[in-house]
Structure formats: structure tokens, C-alpha cells
């Protein structure tokens, strides 16, 4: 029996495998001759630019908002109000730099939230260690 943390790690690795986008070809750091210019563009595309992509009809839904979703929206706006980022930097980070897998895989405000955390570290307002400690400390409040 694996210790709980290792069980968690194994489950994480299983899920990562399951959420890889289907690319229909081997994609493990290919040699340059395998990437023509069309593939270069496809791999470097901005994942937010979805207009015109084929898709099938879905059920149109309304949705209740989670408390953390509301607070995330407000935090992102207030960070912009106080000049930590502008709206355009935010949209790039939330919608493009998260990459295709997170873009399609996480909730709308989940991307906003990760990006809000990242801007604090990227612009050196907090260190990565401070963020990690804070997350661990908040988690402990709920144990």
C-alpha cells in the first residue's frame, strides 16, 4: 500500500495522461524535420482564438457562481485598478499563456485565479516560496 501522498501522485499522473489533448501523432519532442511550418503555427497558436472551429451542439446552461469565482473576478479587477496589470496583459495570460490543456480543461475563473497568482510571482511582488507557504497555511485552516 502506497503512502497517501504517493497515492495522490499516482492519481495525478493518471489524470494528466487522461487530459492530454488528442493530437493523433507522436509528440514527444520531435526532431525539427517532423515540424513543418503549418505544424509550427498550430503548436504556437493562441488557444483563445476558437472562432470557426467545428463543434457539435451542446445544452445552453446558466450557472450559479461559486464564492471563490466572485472573489477571483473582484481580485483581478482590483489588481488592474491598482496597476499591477492592464486588461490586455490579463487577457493574454488568462486566455493564451495558460496553454491549450488548461484553457479547455479548467473552469473560466479557474484560469483567472491561476493567472492572478502567477502575476504576483512573475512581477516579483511575492516569491514562489511565499505563495507556497501561504497556500499551505490556508489549507491548514480547514483541517
Amino acid at each position: 500500500m502506497l503512502p497517501p501522498i504517493r497515492q495522490k501522485v499516482m492519481r495525478h499522473l493518471d489524470i494528466v495522461g487522461l487530459i492530454q489533448p488528442a493530437l493523433h501523432q507522436q509528440t514527444h519532442a520531435p526532431s525539427p524535420d517532423m515540424i513543418d511550418n503549418a505544424h509550427f503555427r498550430a503548436y504556437t497558436r493562441s488557444p483563445h482564438d476558437v472562432g470557426g472551429e467545428p463543434d457539435i451542439p451542446i445544452t445552453w446552461e446558466e450557472k450559479e457562481e461559486e464564492v471563490w469565482e466572485h472573489n477571483t473576478f473582484v481580485t483581478c479587477e482590483v489588481l488592474a485598478w491598482r496597476g499591477v496589470w492592464n486588461a490586455e496583459e490579463r487577457r493574454r495570460r488568462q486566455n493564451v499563456e495558460v496553454g491549450q490543456t488548461q484553457y479547455l480543461g479548467l473552469p473560466y475563473y479557474g484560469r483567472w485565479l491561476l493567472t492572478a497568482a502567477k502575476i504576483l510571482v512573475d512581477k516579483q511582488f511575492v516569491t514562489a516560496t511565499e505563495l507556497q507557504d501561504k497556500v499551505a497555511e490556508v489549507r491548514r485552516r480547514y483541517e
Binding site: 504556437t44 497558436r45 493562441s46 472562432g51 470557426g52 493574454r92
Partner: peptide
């Protein structure tokens, strides 16, 4: 070229 960021849609 649309490396890194653009809001001029591919379509």
C-alpha cells in the same frame, strides 16, 4: 506572424 499574442482572429 502571430507569435505570443494577437486579437486579430485567424478566421
Amino acid at each position: 506572424p502571430d507569435l505570443f499574442y494577437t486579437r486579430t482572429q485567424a478566421y
